[in-house]
Nucleic acid binder design. Structure first.
Length: 289
DNA sequence: AACCAGGGAGCGT
DNA sequence: ACGCTCCATGGT
């Protein structure tokens, strides 16, 4: 076991790992355990920082610093949010929430599988997928620790094998994406250097990937600050909070998002999403738990 | 037991 | 540009 401590202010692991951007972390003994690429790691909150434990010595920790985005200036980001009541309430409810920088392929598959699924179910599907196709990585506690399966591995899978992971009608979408990447017909590495609109157009060429899922990948994996996923929760929230509950056409909604939420609108979106989903920001219609 | 879930695509009007 | 339907599966 090898441990280090990062000094970083106001980093809330609980909110960060529970807000619906990542699906493989699990809480255990007061810490968070997960797999980043081929690294198993256990994280714990410390006074003004985070401790990280791995199962083997680390020559450097950049893979973790980058994933956690430890260098990000959260105060500066939050300061750009709109100074309206919903956003103030969201910031208060989600104090210390950070956006991660996740693997693009993993993020793409996770959100393809997210379509009309509850977050608990998405977690189960991804778990099944990793158990079935992921390479084992050394871990702690005897728990099953596997890397997220590569697209090359999934390209070799059959649709029925993927359906066995309970991803239903999303199975052919995952399979086609894996094969397209494995063949070289699409390169996820290239997307990082594209303007937002072109990056979105590229991802939505994949079957089963529309604007919402594309923006999740662009926000959670590539860090496009103005990628703004609009799901049912966000749509309801925006219409209720800013349009008196009236339904708004997509183009109009996008124009509002562009002008209202500032240069870190995607970040603001995640605060709003989590605040609404946890009930900290109440809406009239929903009936969530 | 219905209803709905961090959607998307293909249809018809 | 809309509205509808289907797509699997399971939580509430």
């Amino acid at each position: 076991m090898n441990t280090t401590v990062f000094s970083v202010p106001n980093y809330n692991l609980d909110v960060t790992f529970s807000c619906g951007q990542a699906f493989r972390w699990h809480c255990r003994d007061g810490g968070w355990e997960g797999v980043i690429d081929n690294h198993w790691v256990r994280l714990e909150s410390r006074k003004d920082g985070i401790s990280a434990a791995t199962d083997r010595p680390q020559t450097n920790w950049r893979w973790l610093e980058d994933y956690l985005q430890l260098h990000a200036d959260l105060d500066a980001i939050v300061a750009t949010f709109p100074q309206d009541e919903p956003m103030r309430a969201s910031v208060q409810a989600c104090n210390g929430m950070r956006l991660l920088r996740q693997n693009p392929w993993e993020t793409l598959v996770c959100f393809i599988c997210s379509a009309t699924k509850q977050i608990v179910q998405i977690r189960q599907i991804i778990h099944n997928l990793c158990q079935q196709f992921g390479e084992p990585v050394a871990g702690s506690g005897g728990g099953a620790c596997r890397a997220f399966p590569t697209f090359s591995r999934l390209a070799l899978a059959g649709e029925e094998e993927l359906r066995a992971c309970k991803m239903g009608f999303r199975a052919p979408h995952v399979l086609a994406a894996a094969r397209k990447l494995d063949s070289g017909a699409m390169d996820l590495g290239r997307i990082a250097s594209l303007p937002l609109d072109e990056a979105r157009d590229c991802l939505t060429q994949l079957n089963g990937v529309g604007p919402k899922i594309a923006d999740c990948v662009l926000l959670f994996a590539y860090g496009f600050p103005k990628a703004f996923p609009v799901d049912v929760w966000i749509r309801r929230a925006l219409e209720h909070l800013y349009f008196r509950g009236r339904s708004v056409r997509p183009e109009r909604l996008n124009r509002f998002i562009e002008t209202h939420f500032g240069p870190w609108s995607g970040y603001a979106q995640q605060y709003l999403f989590h605040a609404v989903r946890t009930g900290a920001l109440p809406l009239p219609k929903p009936k969530h738990a």
